[in-house]
């Protein structure tokens, strides 16, 4: 049954990027905020050791940008913001995601008429 684990790991890998970008979409956020928000959903929880390198990669790819800023609470934090390229990418991914999940739901009979 090792392949079942493998399958869900793959699934999560594909969706994590989408979720992270989706959470950055509504304004700038910092790493800890992202980590604790993701942790609310057990299915989405990732190791923080995964999240930070992912953020690094997304900013290297030019989808998001980061800047160090003082936070309202005091300490300086690294804030992430979506770039126009990231926004386009996110829209495409989102459309793809809905198309896929709708189709899968139909195939599995959840929406049979």
């Amino acid at each position: 049954m090792q392949s079942g684990m493998e399958w869900s790991a793959q699934l999560r890998r594909g969706t994590l990027e989408l979720c992270v970008l989706g959470m950055i979409r509504h304004g700038q956020v910092y790493g800890y905020e992202l980590a604790s928000r993701l942790a609310r959903w057990e299915a989405l929880a990732v190791s923080e050791g995964t999240l930070y390198p992912l953020l690094r990669r997304l900013s290297n790819e030019g989808l998001i940008e980061a800047s160090w800023q003082p936070s309202p609470a005091g300490p300086v934090r690294k804030y992430y913001r979506l770039r126009p390229e990231g926004e386009q990418w996110l829209e495409r991914m989102e459309a793809e995601w809905h198309r896929l999940t709708d189709s899968v739901a139909e195939v599995l009979g959840e929406r049979s008429e």
């Binding site: 790991a9 793959q10 999560r12 890998r13 994590l16 942790a39 057990e42 929880a45 990732v46 190791s47 923080e48 050791g49 995964t50 390198p53 992912l54």
Partner: peptide
């Protein structure tokens, strides 16, 4: 790449 992307929180 796979290893990076699939690590689960150790304390979940």
């Amino acid at each position: 790449r796979k290893w990076i992307a699939t690590a689960r929180p150790p304390t979940a």
